[in-house]
């Protein structure tokens, strides 16, 4: 019964949340395009489904995804877990939190590999590059990027460094790569940063960061809690460009090798011809 009541409160808020987009579509359709909306019944039903879905999703988020992220952070940083059986030490080294980093990387990798919008982008990239870019390898490199990003972000929360040093360093890497990267991949790489973090992953990862910042001694959620998603959107940019650079370097090398082989063959042939001539 409680759940039912909560659902209606969320649904009421959701209607307010979605109102702007409804008014924009209606406004443009009726005032600018000045045609009745095609398939109005279908669109109307679609809208009702969107409302119900959004309300259910937000409710589930609060009941499951946020608590899960925080719970994992609490359990993996609990003194009883990281110092199992030993006496409680006052000085905790960051390597004691290794399971946190492994967990962060595993969440990042697995959710990115399964991300539908990334699959679509990877296929498009393969098509455009004429097969030079392999869709699966691209997906794996983005997933490694996200895994590394979230793990690095957790490390930052554990040691308490200010976030902007990391992000600015990341920007510098992106800038340098941009100059050396095949031009075709640049917009795609920049987009991949935003694409990889899906609706389900974002809340879980945000909760993980907030949980870490509130359980690790000396950290505050306000200063240290956010920032994991920023890492997860920066690292894929670097990973995609790095992948493109590697592929380019490899094709370059094989091309060179082929040329060299050709040249040697031709030289030999010439030599033979010269020998036969006299």
């Amino acid at each position: 019964m409680d759940l039912f009541f909560e659902f209606f409160t969320t649904l009421k808020n959701t209607v307010i949340d979605v109102l702007p987009i409804l008014s924009i579509i209606l406004g443009f359709q009726l005032l600018v395009i000045r045609k009745p909306i095609p398939h109005i019944k279908q669109v109307g039903f679609g809208f009702i489904y969107v409302l119900i879905g959004l309300a259910l999703f937000l409710l589930g988020l609060e009941k499951a995804l946020f608590p899960l992220g925080k719970m994992m952070a609490e359990q993996l940083t609990a003194p009883e877990f990281i110092q199992a059986g030993e006496q409680v030490l006052t000085n905790i080294h960051w390597t004691d939190y290794k399971w946190v980093f492994i967990f962060a990387a595993a969440i990042g990798f697995s959710t990115t590999i399964a991300e539908p919008s990334l699959i679509a982008v990877a296929l498009k990239a393969e098509e455009v590059s004429g097969g030079a870019i392999n869709a699966n390898s691209l997906r794996i490199s983005v997933a490694i990027g996200v895994a590394f990003g979230i793990a690095l972000g957790s490390y930052r929360i554990v040691v308490g460094h200010p976030i902007h040093y990391y992000i600015i360093a990341g920007y510098i890497v992106v800038v340098v790569q941009t100059f050396f990267c095949p031009k075709l991949i640049v917009p795609l790489a920049y987009d991949s940063g935003g694409v990889t973090t899906s609706t389900v992953t974002v809340p879980l990862v945000a909760a993980l960061g907030l949980g870490l910042a509130s359980t690790i001694p000396g950290r505050s959620p306000l200063i240290d809690g956010f920032g994991l998603i920023a890492f997860a959107s920066l690292c894929p940019i670097i990973a995609v460009m790095a992948y493109a650079q590697l592929t380019e370097a490899r094709t370059h090398r094989t091309n060179k090798k082929l040329e060299k082989r050709k040249r040697i063959k031709e030289e030999k042939r010439n030599l033979n011809r010269n020998n036969e001539a006299p």
Binding site: V50, A55, L56
Partner: peptide, 13 residues
């Protein structure tokens, strides 16, 4: 929730 949301989006929006 996600199912209804995406279904609705694809149907209407």
């Amino acid at each position: 929730g996600l199912t209804f949301f995406i279904y609705g989006l694809e149907m209407g929006l």
